[in-house]
Design a protein around this nucleic acid. Structure first.
Lengths: 293, 293
DNA sequence: AACTTAATGTAATAAAATTACACTAATTGT
DNA sequence: ACAATTAGTGTAATTTTATTACATTAAGTT
């Protein structure tokens, strides 16, 4: 946990004077970092030694050490501030801004992803006879990606982007199966309909979607994809995509761990099956050098 | 530029004694951060004031300020060290590790993505009559995602994951088109074959792939996806996926900017077209409250 | 209400960093 | 080649900064 979090959490267990110091730091951490004890003390309205004592209370050995911790915490925070691209931006600026935005999205995920729902999903999927994945529109690519990942782990998995196929799959699913729905908004009527059908089949319904949506309410397990993050303004709403993809990554990794050696063997087998489709590095170099000039 | 970079760059323009200090810091920045001037000075074999002078030379006002700068620089560096998951990991640990790995991948992209090739790709795509996207296996989902993004910008775009369709598309493409190939390894024979066909059609061939691969050599424009990052060991090789997705994001964003108001209008139109497929938040809340208990 | 404990401030001390100054090495012009 | 100037470095003094020791006050307890 970073120092700012720590200070925030411990804030109420500190003594009055220490709390004043805490408040002063939390109010303006960036500035606090560049102050001497004396200045911070006077701003907080306490004596100099209180600052030293405060440092100890938040498990730093000295005030300089606290400054270092603050610097670390703020270094992370700074990169979360991702600005929107604007007209005059060069390619380089766009690159920086989009990478910042995506990193910020991951940082958001770090603090908002619920461990328990991941655990529950992994458990359900781990014991499932088959996994059926559904995603439409922007989520269709995500569904396909998830299918690819899970299938490689040796878990029978299908992905649909066709509404009629989804209906059939949802109606035909059994309680031994897992039904996974990806939806960015959680408000697409067609998708909600599928969820309702799936529920009637007693299948374990897992949704990766906006938690405040009607779709989420139907699910046995809901994993939050940060719909709040999405700036629905003009420029490409992408961050949710990264978040969902990382959620898949996490689930697949956890599943592989849960399956143990079986998954490893399966991955190796699948990987080797591709060997003959690949061109060797050495053979190619000759070819390309001869054919080009 | 972060302080470690700065020190490295300025290293050779410093005086002898200052260079010693620089070397000492570069050798063990983490430790240097927790030393007093006196200790750092003695380790570097110089006098105390040299440390202060060194700080000035690298544009810090004081040694404590340098420490803060170091802390910031190291905070970033630390998060790039992403460990592999291992057997006993809890869900929480897996989450942290995978998020770290993905953030690290983005950081890698930040320093390795070539601005010029992005510029070239955007320019080519911006003037293209249509964009044809091809991706197989793991890249099929990526291709689909890219199609979805570009199509929303009002650019005629198709994506194929079927080899035969790709052949036809590649053979039928014209010099006014862009042919986009996604491939993680750049060594899939089937994909190389498509690239060769596309070349014969005089189409502008853009590949997003491993730059050292045979596929990359065929392309007019190659954008590097970090194949080197991929740990091809057992657990889910995912980082490349995030990288490629972010590259698409960057290109799409830059394209939207390049197209200007036209793209904005198009995005708004496409967005509104989805309105009637969505369930309203207010209407839903009533429904779910009434139907549940 | 007296006593005990915790919390805070004042003053003193210790630690750390920087400045001032002196000396040395290097460079340049005659 | 040698003086003269300049840049570089170390020593010692000073200043700034942080911490400790101790006294005082406030809060809580029997």
């Amino acid at each position: 946990m970073n120092i700012l979090h720590l200070i925030k959490v411990q804030r109420d267990q500190l003594s009055k004077a220490e709390a004043k110091v805490a408040d002063e730091i939390l109010a303006a951490p960036e500035e606090a970092m560049n102050m001497a004890t004396a200045e911070l003390a006077s701003r907080a309205g306490v004596s100099d030694p209180m600052v030293s004592r405060f440092c100890r209370s938040v498990s730093c050995n000295s005030f300089p050490e606290l400054k270092v911790q603050l610097a670390k915490a703020l270094a992370h925070r700074a990169s979360f501030i991702s600005e929107a691209v604007s007209k005059g931006d060069t390619a380089h600026t766009v690159i920086e801004k989009r990478i910042n935005a995506n990193q910020a999205a991951l940082e958001y995920l770090r603090s908002h992803l619920d461990t328990q729902s991941i655990d529950a999903a992994v458990k359900a999927m781990s014991g499932a006879r088959q996994i059926i994945i559904a995603g439409m529109g922007g989520a269709a690519a995500i569904a396909k990606d998830a299918q690819h990942k899970l299938f490689r782990l040796g878990i029978p998995t299908v992905a649909y982007d066709d509404h009629l196929m989804m209906r059939m799959a949802a109606a035909g699913a059994s309680s031994k199966d897992c039904f996974l729905i990806f939806s960015v908004t959680g408000r697409t009527n067609a998708m909600i309909e599928i969820a309702e059908l799936a529920k009637q089949s007693q299948v374990t319904l897992i949704t990766i979607t906006n938690p405040d949506s009607p779709l989420a309410k139907l699910a046995d397990i809901t994993i939050t994809s940060g719909d709040e993050l999405e700036d629905t303004t003009i420029y490409v709403p992408m961050t949710t995509r990264i978040i969902i993809l990382t959620i898949i990554d996490i689930i697949a990794t956890a599943l592989a761990l849960a399956q143990g050696p079986a998954a490893e063997a399966q991955l190796t087998k699948v990987k080797h099956s591709l060997d003959t489709t690949k061109r060797k590095a050495s053979a190619e170099r000759k070819t390309s050098k001869n054919s080009k000039p």
